[in-house]
Design a protein around this nucleic acid. Structure first.
Length: 422
RNA sequence: GGAGAGGUGGCUGAGUGGUUGAAAGCGCUCCCCUGCUAAGGGAGUAUGUGGUAAUCCUGCAUCGAGGGUUCGAAUCCCUCCCUCUCCGCCA
């Protein structure tokens, strides 16, 4: 949620900033409802004060065994009035909250102007793209060839956009997860954490998936339970500290968490229908940090470098981009995407998204820091380190051999029973 | 899933309708005293939000969550959530 105080004080700047990401801030509505809220709130609280005073008076009179019927009569008069006012206020406040919750984060000054991924700023390209002297295959062909991927089997037991991994690909999946967790815990000193994969709506509101992106979530359809499958570990891990006041001495808090992620991918049925690039379920290793607001800019660089490090160790060619104003996510203020080279597509494809949310999420979640005896909102960040399915696809394609086999990246061999080839 | 007990401030823990936002203790902060790794004395110490530019002042809200009764609810009633104990089931 954006800072309401700031919204009031710097209305035109805020509107301008939001318009850069294509968000049309309804100024008339805002001014009207805010004025309404203010008026109602003042009136309601004044009535409440009168009533509280009367109630206190009655208490005293009764204690002194004096007649309090007159005060009681007066208080009764207020009671109804107060109730209707309060109801009105509740409604307006709920409406206002809805409005505020659907406003995206303000974007950082570094975010480039643009309306699609074509306008993202390319920061750097790292690693050498492989050159092939033969006709290359895409990762799906390679997976099917080795009999390690089964899409038909997956759709039989579930539905489309799921996959079954077998043998060496099942092993590769597990190897990648362990490799990534090891690097982040041992070299980057993240605390490993394991969390529920089913979360309540408060958690999804906290990180920004709700109320606006309900159709992207898998909801548990069981006795109208208020539960959803997680779209990313970001949700449970960030919400782990919801409603808490963190000790500034503990910061930065950095977690690494492996989970499956579930996305309904509503409205993307034409996209990436081949292979494992876009599935309803995929594995991801996620990095999440909680930092002092002063350090979040720096922390984004650090966190992104940790994700990059995995790609470097795997010797996968990639590039780093800054998402432009209309490609950046709802809750983020600044996002670096890491895009891995996919030879079959002759394109770089997103494999990690590292974002600084500043105080947008922590305001929703009330995550604060005790600093100089005051409570301030902390800053939250996260990034994939990395998306495992896409990493697997990238390895298959970049490490493929002419005979359809796939070499195994050096760093993974210890995790692959020292196999050299898939 | 069934039966019972319970959810109060950073922690422990009082409080069953009326100045209780909440005793007391611990912890923490500041000050005083004390020539020493101790003890004592004093003061302060929840969060959110409104009026405000405001850390001053002041209003309102918050005792698991949401409703209800009442002039008035931490206290009474209803629903839900969570924790603990026992039983059932189970990886």
């Amino acid at each position: 949620m954006i800072d309401v105080q700031n919204l009031k004080n710097n209305l035109s700047e805020t509107i301008e900033n939001l318009s850069r990401r294509g968000f049309d801030f309804n100024e008339d509505y805002w001014l009207k409802i805010e004025e309404k809220r203010k008026k109602l709130q003042i009136e309601t609280e004044q009535l409440q004060e009168i009533q509280n005073n009367l109630a206190r008076e009655i208490g005293k009179l009764q204690k002194d065994k004096k007649d309090f019927s007159k005060a009681k009569e007066e208080a009764s008069k207020f009671s109804d009035d107060l109730k209707t006012k309060k109801n009105k206020l509740d409604k307006v406040q709920a409406e206002l909250k809805d409005f505020l919750l659907s406003i995206p984060n303000l974007i950082d000054a570094k975010v480039p102007e643009g309306n699609s991924e074509l306008d993202n700023t390319i920061v750097e390209e790292i690693g050498k793209k492989p050159e092939f002297s033969f006709d290359i295959k895409d990762h799906q062909e390679l997976g099917l060839l080795g009999n390690g991927m089964d899409f038909d089997g997956a759709s039989k037991i579930s539905k489309s956009r799921f996959v079954v991994f077998k043998d060496s690909l099942a092993l590769l999946n597990r190897a990648l997860i362990n490799f990534m967790l090891d690097v982040h815990t041992k070299e980057h000193m993240y605390k490993e954490i394991y969390v529920p994969l089913i979360v309540n709506s408060d958690s999804l509101i906290g990180t920004g998936q709700l109320p606006k992106f309900k159709e992207d979530q898998f909801k548990i359809d069981d006795n109208e339970q208020d539960l959803y499958l997680i779209p990313t570990a970001e949700v449970p891990v960030t919400n782990y500290h919801r409603n808490e006041i963190l000790d500034s001495k503990e910061l930065p808090i950095t977690y690494v968490c492996h989970t499956p992620c579930f996305r309904s991918e509503a409205g993307s049925y034409g996209l990436d229908t081949k292979g494992i690039i876009r599935q309803h379920q995929f594995e991801k290793v996620e990095l999440v940090s909680f930092v002092d607001p002063e350090n979040s800019d720096e922390q984004l660089e650090v966190l992104t470098s940790h994700a990059e490090n995995i790609l470097k160790k795997l010797k996968l060619p990639f590039r780093k981009v800054i998402l432009c104003s209309q490609d950046i996510g709802f809750s983020s203020s600044l996002t670096y995407d890491l895009e891995v080279w996919l030879p079959s597509q002759n394109k770089y494809r997103e494999i990690s998204s590292c974002s600084n949310f500043k105080d947008f999420q922590s305001r929703r979640m009330k995550i604060r820091i005790k600093k100089d005896k005051k409570n301030i909102l902390c800053h939250t960040l996260n990034g994939s380190g990395l998306a495992v399915g896409r990493t697997m696809a990238a390895i298959l394609e970049n490490y493929q051999n002419e005979d359809g086999t796939v070499s195994i990246p050096e760093v993974l061999k210890p995790y692959m029973n020292n196999l050299k080839i898939l």
